[in-house]
Simulated assay, not measured.
Amino acid sequence: MKHLVVYAHPHPESFNYSIMETIVQALENNGHEVVVRDLYALDFQPVLKPEDTDAMKSGHIPDDIKTEQEFITQSDVITFIYPIWWAGLPAIIKGYVDRVFSYGYAYAYGEEGIIQLLKGKKGLIINTHGAPKEMYDKIGMTAGLKITSDVGIFEFTGIEPIDHLLFGNVSEHLEESVLKEMLKQIEERINSIF
């Protein structure tokens, strides 16, 4: 299978980076083809500008958007890896969705309603957050994050969500053994799915 990993964290020494490396290694060990799009390393422009929408309406997709759409088109599985900041997606990955999952590419409207243009693809999301997992579960944040991303982004465009892993209490003060256990869980889950 062809995998696209869309990664969004500004620090290469972050736990999210370790997650990305773990996933890539596990997939490649299982014979999958993997492409990583590190949005910060690419200096991806997240702001949807009027000239973007004007160009798309006239059938001229801006080059940076077209490049990302081609990676999605060529993939069977799309994996998002990002931290939860202020109860949601970091601006760079939200902007990626705003600009790349555009009308006419990822979805459209017809007489029957929404037309999902990315059907046949699968999606996986892995998030970290600083708050304890139990707190997020209790206040409904975990469920809310899954609805927003799994349903609001993936299902809306036809991508089948296959899992959404959230790891709480993640900080630079967390013991190395706990972080390694989380990475082991991720590797085992990747191996069981793919």
Rank of each mutant, 00 (worst) to 15 (best):
Ser102Cys: 06
Ser58Thr: 15
Val151Tyr: 13
Ile114His: 04
His164Tyr: 08
Glu51Pro: 03
Lys2His: 13
Ala106Met: 08
Ile19Asn: 01
Ala26Gly: 00
Glu111Asn: 14
Asp54Lys: 13
Leu48Asn: 00
Asp98Cys: 08
Gln25Leu: 11
Trp85Pro: 04
Thr73Met: 07
Val77Tyr: 14
Met135Phe: 12
Gly88Phe: 03
Val5Phe: 09
Met182Asn: 14
Ser171Phe: 02
Thr53Ile: 12
Gly152Cys: 03
Ile153Cys: 07
Leu118Tyr: 01
Val170Gly: 03
Ile186Trp: 03
Glu172Lys: 10
Glu172Gly: 12
Ala41Tyr: 00
Tyr103Ser: 11
Asp150Trp: 09
Asp163Tyr: 05
Gly130Phe: 01
Ile115His: 09
Asp137Cys: 05
Phe194Arg: 11
Trp85Met: 02
Leu174Lys: 11
Thr148Trp: 14
Val77Ser: 11
Tyr7Val: 12
Glu13Ser: 13
Met182Thr: 12
Phe194Pro: 04
Gly59Glu: 09
His164Leu: 03
Gly158Trp: 06
Ile93Asn: 13
Gly158Leu: 03
Leu118Glu: 02
Glu70Gly: 14
Ile65Trp: 05
Lys146Ser: 10
Phe71Asn: 13
Lys121Gln: 07
Val97Ala: 08
Asp64Ser: 06
Asn30Glu: 13
Glu176Met: 02
Lys2Val: 11
Ser18Ile: 00
Val34Asn: 02
Phe154Glu: 05
Lys184Asn: 13
Glu111Lys: 15
Ile93Trp: 07
Met20His: 08
Pro90Asn: 06
Ser192Gln: 12
Tyr105Gln: 07
Gln25Arg: 14
Val34Ala: 02
Tyr17Asp: 09
Tyr136Ala: 15
Thr128Ala: 00
Ile114Gly: 01
Leu145Lys: 08
Glu13Arg: 08
Pro161Phe: 01
Tyr107Lys: 03
Asn29Lys: 10
